[in-house]
Design a binder for these strands. Structure first.
Lengths: 194, 194
DNA sequence: ACTAATTTGGTACGCTTGTACCAGATTGAG
DNA sequence: CTCAATCTGGTACAAGCGTACCAAATTAGT
């Protein structure tokens, strides 16, 4: 259900943000009515009042999270200076778009990006949303390459994304996973073979 | 706990197989004491008797499933006829090794192979097992390339695997996912670029 | 200000879960 | 055969879950 009053809308939004935060911390299974309500500082019943089912809450959380990522990507595109797109810097930029900005809790943040791809396999209701976000990310990357003076075809974009994604999922099983480093290796090899 | 009597060992094995079958059907979350016991035709308490915790049961199921896959791969390697390794046939062979033999319920079977990679991200206790199985798979693929008269370096094997894996996880969000086709496209392009 | 719509929040229900318990049956060793 | 070790299987429990309910409080429209 959608809120009809401003305060209600704020409350609803608080629930979405709490759910998104739980999603980032513990994955899809961490989004539960009680946990969301507690993190938002609201009573349990507010979650069922504003969302017809838990799935709706999951979708809203995923959308919130994804939109934040896309906004970050667009900001990076806007501030892009074509003169500062040397090989390594550009690779880091691509990694930032695909895996999020580099940080200490790298592996954990990256994990969610792949959990949702795989989770979509068993949750068809996530597909429309995931397709939209995935499409926007591809377009963003396409633009980034063009803006950086290294225009590539859409197929090449897909190939590079697959390369990064494959490197990441295979890196997740290491004792102390460093998916970003694995992706960087693959990207470097594929983008500067000579 | 490990069984001490032959009949006990058979029972334990039946539980492992039941758990593996549930894993294939519904993913990790489908492995639950009651479900495993029911599928094995055994009482609930047998699951806690032979396995100290649910995690142990999950590990055993994953190992059983993975070993079956590796055995299939080794069989394919043994029966490999180097003369029948034309481009397309060879690509299908590689896909069979990485995604399992082609079938109707393709997407579902493939899904599990990637769920476990990602699941390992939040279940560190799966890492040793996953690393061993992943290593064996890489070695298997390395041998396959050599036997087929197309020897490649270990790095190239990793690259091709990443390409396939990335193609698959990105295909999972399609309305009617066909991860094998997506992987095939990527492989074809990368293996016969001219 | 008054009434109807919306929101609130406490509570409860029915279900499933992992795990523990234990009296009795079965098995293997001497 | 005997007896201790192993196994069996029915039952119970506390915790967590999604969801429903509803009287009271708040807000919006007139």
């Amino acid at each position: 259900m959608t809120a009809a009053t401003p305060k209600g809308e704020r409350r609803r939004q608080a629930l979405v943000e709490a759910a998104a935060s739980l999603l980032a911390d513990g994955g899809f299974d961490a989004i539960r009515h009680r946990a969301v309500a507690e993190r938002a500082g609201l009573p349990l019943a507010s979650t069922t009042y504003y969302f017809d089912s838990l799935d709706e809450l999951v979708i809203a959380a995923l959308e919130f999270h994804g939109n934040a990522e896309l906004a970050y990507g667009k900001a990076r595109l806007d501030e892009l200076d074509p003169r500062e797109c040397g090989g390594d810097a550009f690779i880091e930029l691509v990694l930032d778009l695909l895996l999020g900005p580099s940080g200490e809790r790298d592996a954990e943040a990256v994990l969610l990006r792949y959990e949702r791809l795989v989770a979509t396999g068993r949750r068809p209701y996530l597909r429309p949303l995931m397709r939209r976000m995935s499409g926007e990310l591809h377009a963003l990357l396409f633009d980034i390459f063009a803006r950086a003076g290294q225009p590539v075809g859409r197929e090449r974009v897909e190939e590079l994304i697959a390369l990064v994604d494959g490197a990441v999922v295979n890196a997740l099983i290491e004792i102390s996973p460093d998916p970003r480093a694995a992706a960087r290796r693959m990207l470097s090899k594929s983008m500067q073979p000579r």
